[in-house]
Simulated assay, not measured.
Amino acid sequence: MRQSVEIEFPRGADSYAVTRWAGEAPDAPVVVAAHGITANGLAWAPLAEAVPEIDLVAPDLRGRGRSRGVGGPYSMAAHADDLVRTLDHLGIEQATLLGHSMGGWVVAVAAVRHPDRFGGVVLVDGGLGFPLPPDVDMDELLDALLGPAMTKLRTVYADRDEFLAPWRNHPSLTEVYSPAVEAYLARDLIGTAPELRSACVLEAVRDDAADELRNPEAVGAIRALPVPAVFLHAERGLLNEPVGLYPPAVVAAAELAGAGVDVRFVPGTNHYSIVLGDRGIAAVAEAVRALLQ
């Protein structure tokens, strides 16, 4: 198993946590990865195993995991600037960006705001906006989209197994569940039994969702990328529904090629397995390697 190093540095009200998997060579190319809206940096552990030649840097974004105490503001710009501060703390001049789900918006905004620090962007089932009614209730939208991921934010668990049980049986995870996936999920737990909770800050999830879907800077970032970019979209949805978050017809209508984005459909994957399962990891690894070349 590839060894990782945990790094923390002062940021805001608390410390910002980063997991780093050093590359095989001292001069390995750096990839900085942003996770999804209720996830944490260990979501990238399976990819780290598959691409040992890169130096993979994966923060717990503010309001999540071990960065939950950093505090607001919560927005794509705040997360993007945190990625640059991470590079500064580690003494890294330039990196390739990789983002999954909400992380897609984070890295797109990072590339637009800091074009001198990033050489390419891989967006994985995220970063492309879709129209919302002006009066949509954000909590209702998040519950409809994320289901169990939102339920965990409001639930108190008696022990670790009670927390993990719904995920072991989650329709999108049953085929890819592994010790690495379980470690990623368990990183989210805080507190002491019998009062365990998710580390995700509900305010952060709400504010970030509103920002990624309504803020013109975040919504428009994918069409303003100043560096080479790849957009990967999964065949199936968040609950392994037959239709993905980004149906092929919707992606085609977005005409991302006109904005210089290389669009790739990833069959046999859903919103989670595209970063946690072998097929998805292979597609992400191929996209990353293509940009690094």
Results as ranks from 00 to 15, higher is better:
186 A>L: 07
226 P>T: 04
254 A>E: 11
157 Y>A: 11
25 A>H: 11
208 D>I: 07
107 V>K: 07
111 A>P: 10
11 R>T: 15
194 P>T: 02
243 V>D: 15
31 V>W: 02
151 T>R: 14
215 N>K: 08
42 L>T: 06
290 A>D: 14
77 A>C: 13
284 V>H: 07
196 L>S: 03
151 T>Q: 12
46 P>C: 04
227 V>G: 12
90 L>I: 10
17 A>Q: 03
33 A>Y: 02
258 G>C: 06
241 E>R: 07
289 R>Y: 06
110 A>S: 11
235 E>S: 05
135 D>P: 07
99 G>A: 08
131 P>I: 06
27 D>H: 01
6 E>H: 15
213 L>K: 13
58 A>L: 01
198 S>G: 12
182 E>M: 00
53 E>S: 10
222 I>M: 05
69 G>M: 11
144 A>E: 13
14 D>V: 13
171 P>L: 13
51 V>F: 03
106 V>T: 14
47 L>D: 01
124 V>P: 07
89 H>Q: 14
150 M>I: 15
262 D>M: 11
74 Y>S: 04
53 E>Y: 07
91 G>Q: 10
191 G>E: 00
149 A>L: 07
35 H>A: 08
227 V>N: 14
64 R>A: 09
239 L>A: 15
128 L>I: 05
254 A>T: 08
256 L>T: 13
199 A>L: 00
105 W>H: 12
273 S>D: 00
282 A>G: 12
159 D>L: 09
232 L>D: 03
185 L>C: 03
14 D>N: 12
18 V>D: 02
208 D>N: 14
99 G>S: 01
74 Y>V: 05
137 D>R: 14
148 P>C: 12
241 E>F: 08
123 L>K: 10
7 I>Q: 11
230 V>E: 01
181 V>L: 08
205 V>D: 01
242 P>K: 09
198 S>I: 01
247 P>Q: 10
244 G>S: 03
170 H>K: 09
14 D>I: 13
275 V>H: 06
138 M>V: 15
51 V>T: 11
198 S>D: 04
156 V>Q: 00
121 V>E: 03
87 L>W: 10
260 G>I: 11
224 A>L: 14
24 E>H: 09
230 V>C: 10
248 P>N: 04
116 D>S: 12
114 H>Y: 10
102 M>D: 00
98 L>M: 05
116 D>L: 02
85 R>E: 13
237 G>P: 01
268 G>M: 11
95 A>F: 12
14 D>L: 10
142 L>S: 06
247 P>A: 07
189 L>N: 01
252 A>C: 07
265 F>R: 12
30 V>N: 06
125 D>L: 00
142 L>E: 05
149 A>V: 08
53 E>M: 06
99 G>D: 04
48 A>P: 04
121 V>T: 14
112 V>C: 10
36 G>N: 03
